[in-house]
Every structure is written in structure tokens, then in C-alpha cells.
Design a protein around this nucleic acid. Structure first.
Length: 399
DNA sequence: AGTCCACAGGAAGGGCAGGCGA
DNA sequence: TCGCCTGCCCTTCCTGTGGACT
């Protein structure tokens, strides 16, 4: 092969797989220059938080909306702008963003306080101190700011479900002894009904204002995809109908823009891998099943050993009798399995919790039913397509 | 109408690891 | 090093319950 030939091969390759001008733009964490179809929410939030720029304490806000409706994106956008303006006009304003869903960050009161204090510039060990001590660190950090601190708590519903609302109550009372500093809280929640779990006092102080993010409809998703697609992809890369299809599928998923972007990106990656010249609608279908498969495999991979063994028991029992497994039956099977494997056997109580966790992950479907005189149990069904189960068996131990 | 099964799921606490200050 | 604190996984003990059966 001549040098020229070799160069042609590379050249061809370069030409073939360059659907993407900038793939990052199709990632959900990318901050676009313009946020489409959220003007109303942006204006509302901006006017609620604007008093902070005068050093006044803004009202606490609750932001509601299902996944992929742009809540986090909009909040980040606003807090960036607040920071810029406050810097220009010499106002002391700080925003702190915490994602309460991240494990090891905000699943206990200690960790949450530690993380908040860290964000405000204090050095706090990840364990070892009494919680009250960490609380003091946090309050100190707030006092030192001598200005308004806006705490944005994303996925706040998971926090409240885990550690209760006492913590939030404490936060709302903080302003009484902060000196020159003021705190206000922006809570972001996926769950519209979640304030029902909360104490009425906390509820009323925290949700002084509420902003709702409705799901995007297919038309809006289409515009969002087109907008981002124009910057991320080459004009020639898309077959007619690809964007519409991504939008339509994502609209079925509660108007989830994240899903829409993922679909387009993954469809592109798959088409690229096959050396195609265009992304076709067929690749959107492939992307849909790949995303689902990856999500499940990733989730299961990260489960602890015992949880995997429980899942393996469910898979095997399901194969034997085709679904509707009840708890007692599963536990007996699991007990035998662990004995055969020489692994220790957990109690039924613990296994019951593991079943719940798998249920929350969406890997299985466990529903409490009553069998009348024959007691109450959970009917467990596996919630995965056969190809996903196969992939799990290939790539996860104990399965 | 009452019984009673087979669990669900809450509460409390044990034991261990990681990490702190003294 | 010790005493203390928290997180995590787990057990023990317990109360609650939907509805087929009697």
C-alpha cells in the first residue's frame, strides 16, 4: 500500500464518521446559550430571587417538575446570572448547589451539612465529628459570608424521604442568628406530591413560592433537538424524521428532554459505528433499546453481592415458573442457593428490603397482594426484556 | 362477622470500619 | 494509643393488614 493509499483510508475514515461537530452539546449537562420553552419559569424565578441583589432575603422557593423538564438547567442558568450581576454591583451573594440524590453527598444529615460547609469554603472531614459540630462549621461558614446565600437543593424529595424534614425546619430557622448573613432555600423536586410528607410548618415556610415546570410536548422537544442538533451535528447527518422520532419517543417518557437528547446522541454513535453516512430512524429504535439495556446493566452491576444473588434467584425462578413469584417461595430458593454457594444467608427481613430496592431500581416489579386466608405477600415479576437478561448474565457476576 | 395466614415493613440496636481530637 | 462519633449492613422483635375461608 502506498503512502497515498494509506492517507486515503484515513481520510475516508475521517469523512465517514464525522456526524458530530461537537457531541457535548447533545449531553444533558451542557449549558446551551439559549434555553427554549422555559421563558415563563425563568422570569418567575428571576423575579423571586432578585431581592438577593439588594442584599435582601429572597423568599424560599419550591420548584416542581418531572425528570428532564429543565429544572436544574434553568436554576444553574439563573444562579450564574445572579453571580455575574452581584459581582458587577459589588453585592455579597453566594449560591450553593447540592444534588441530594448523589450518594455519599447528601444521604445523611452529617454528609449534607459537611457538603454545604465545604461548598462555602470550610474543610470538613467526611466522618468522625459529631453532627452538631459539623452544624456549627456550617453556621460559621454562613456567618462569614456576610451576605445572602442561596442554597439550591436538587432532588430534595429524596433527602426528605431519607432523613426527614427536621433538617429543613432547622434551615428555615437559621436566619434568626446569622448576624449579617441571610439564607434562602430553593428546593427542586421531581415529585409533585412530596410536600405531603412534610410537617405543615416546614411546608409553609419552605414553599413561600412555587414554580412548576410542565413536561415538554413533542413539538417543544422537536425544537429543542433541532436547536441543539444544528450545533452538534453536521447538516448532512440526519435523515428526515429522525428528530421527530426522538421527540415522539421522549414525549411518551413524560416529556423528558434528557431522554430526547440521549436518543439522538446514541443513535448517532450507533450509526457512526456501522459506518453509515446518515442517522436513520432505525437507529433511533436501536438507541432506545440500548439506553434501556445500559441503564439496567449499570444499575445491577453496582448492586452488592447479596442483592445480585437475590436477583439471580428471581431470574432462575422466573425461568422455571414464568413469573408471579411470591416472597416465601423466593426466600426458600435463595436460602438453598446461598447454602450451595457457601455464602451466608440473610434473614427474610433483610431480603425483603433487597427486593424493595430492586423494585425501586425498576429491575423487577414487586406488588403487594393479599391471598386472603393464605396471607399477604409480594408478587414478584421480572421487568426486563430477554435480551437484557442475557446481557446481565454475560456481564454481571452471580447471575 | 370473625378468623387467620404470610407476609409487609417500622423500630431498635449490634457490630464493624473509617476517621476525628487529645 | 484511646475514646468517641458516624455510616453501613444486618438481625431481632414487633405490629399491622387484605381478603379468602369458615
Amino acid at each position: 500500500m502506498s503512502d497515498q493509499d494509506l492517507q486515503n483510508v484515513f481520510k475516508e475514515y475521517m469523512e465517514q464518521d464525522s456526524f458530530f461537530q461537537n457531541k457535548d452539546i447533545l449531553s444533558f449537562s451542557y449549558n446551551p446559550d439559549e434555553i427554549l420553552h422555559r421563558e415563563e419559569q425563568i422570569n418567575e424565578l428571576a423575579s423571586i430571587l432578585a431581592p438577593a441583589l439588594k442584599g435582601e432575603e429572597p423568599s424560599n422557593v419550591f420548584v416542581y417538575g418531572t425528570v428532564g423538564t429543565g429544572k436544574t438547567l434553568v436554576m444553574n442558568h439563573i444562579s450564574e446570572h445572579l453571580k455575574t450581576v452581584s459581582k458587577d454591583s459589588d453585592v455579597s451573594l453566594e449560591t450553593v448547589y447540592i444534588n441530594c440524590k448523589l450518594k455519599k453527598v447528601a444521604d445523611t444529615e452529617y454528609r449534607l451539612l459537611a457538603q454545604l460547609a465545604r461548598e462555602l469554603g470550610k474543610d470538613v472531614p467526611s466522618t468522625g465529628l459529631p453532627t452538631s459540630e459539623v452544624h456549627n462549621y456550617f453556621v460559621e461558614a454562613l456567618k462569614e459570608k456576610e451576605g445572602v446565600v442561596i442554597i439550591i437543593m436538587d432532588e430534595i424529595d429524596t433527602l426528605v424521604k431519607k432523613i426527614g424534614d427536621d433538617f429543613l425546619y432547622g434551615l428555615t430557622r437559621l436566619n434568626e442568628d446569622l448576624g449579617d448573613s441571610r439564607v434562602s432555600i430553593v428546593g427542586i423536586s421531581n415529585d409533585l406530591n412530596f410536600t405531603d410528607y412534610m410537617d405543615a410548618r416546614v411546608k409553609s415556610t419552605l414553599s413561600e413560592e412555587e414554580v412548576i415546570f410542565p413536561p415538554y410536548n413533542a413539538l417543544e422537544l422537536k425544537e429543542i433537538l433541532r436547536h441543539r442538533g444544528e450545533q452538534a451535528l453536521l447538516d448532512s447527518a440526519l435523515q428526515e424524521g429522525v428528530i421527530s422520532k426522538c421527540a415522539a419517543l421522549a414525549a411518551q417518557e413524560q416529556g423528558d428532554a434528557r431522554r430526547a437528547l440521549d436518543l439522538l446522541r446514541v443513535a448517532g454513535e450507533l450509526a457512526e459505528r456501522d459506518n453509515k453516512t446518515k442517522i436513520t430512524t432505525g437507529y433511533v429504535d436501536k438507541a432506545q433499546s440500548k439506553i434501556e439495556r445500559d441503564r439496567v446493566v449499570e444499575a445491577v452491576k453496582n448492586q452488592p453481592k447479596q442483592s445480585k444473588i437475590v436477583l439471580a434467584s428471581i431470574v432462575e425462578l422466573n425461568k422455571q415458573k414464568g413469573g408471579n413469584i411470591d416472597t416465601g417461595e423466593l426466600y426458600n430458593y435463595y436460602k438453598d442457593k446461598t447454602n450451595n454457594m457457601g455464602v451466608n444467608t440473610l434473614t427474610q427481613r433483610r431480603v425483603s428490603d433487597l427486593i424493595s430496592e430492586l423494585n425501586i431500581l425498576g429491575v423487577i416489579n414487586a406488588k403487594v397482594v393479599s391471598k386472603g386466608k393464605y396471607g399477604r405477600t409480594r408478587k414478584i415479576n421480572i421487568n426486563l426484556a430477554p435480551d437484557v437478561v442475557k446481557k446481565l448474565k454475560d456481564s454481571v457476576d452471580y447471575l
